[in-house]
């Protein structure tokens, strides 16, 4: 069963792009065989509602799972209506994301919103 990942490039050596609506590509991957195919995100050139366009594309691709960083409320509603499970992962190499996925380490997103990356407890100066 293929899953979709929002990514910066076109293959397994690229990185996860945490921005769902404006990521350049979605990588459709079979986690078992690692066979994959990149589809361009039509949302990237959208005048508005990039997340909507991107979500529509992911639904149309027939996947049931999406791994991304953050998605807004509109995209979230479309993905949910399309029966897609949304998993959250930090920006990083796609291979690492796949590993985390196989180990069941990725949390499911149950509400739309922006991911906070935190300050790791350090000040500004």
């Amino acid at each position: 069963m293929r899953i979709a990942i929002s990514v910066t490039g076109q293959d397994l050596d690229s990185s996860l792009d945490p921005r769902f609506g404006r990521c350049p590509y979605f990588l459709l991957v079979d986690p078992e065989t690692e066979e994959h195919q990149a589809v361009p995100n039509p949302g990237i050139s959208a005048g508005g509602g990039a997340g909507i366009k991107a979500a529509q594309e992911v639904v149309n691709q027939g996947v049931k799972t999406l791994i991304t960083g953050q998605c807004g409320p509109n995209a979230f509603n479309i993905l949910t209506a399309g029966g897609i499970k949304i998993l959250q992962a930090p920006a990083g190499p796609v291979r690492r994301v796949l590993e985390l996925y196989k180990q069941g380490e990725l949390a499911e997103v149950n509400a739309p919103g922006m991911a906070k990356q935190g300050m790791q407890g350090r000040g500004f100066r």
Binding site: G48, G49, Q56, N77, I78, A81
Partner: peptide
């Protein structure tokens, strides 16, 4: 409709239509 709309104010998914009036 969704295909036509340049502003992505509509989406058609698996037998449902969603509208985004604010767009």
């Amino acid at each position: 409709c969704a295909e036509f709309c340049q502003f992505n104010a509509l989406a058609v998914i698996n037998g449902s239509v969603m509208t985004f009036p604010e767009l």
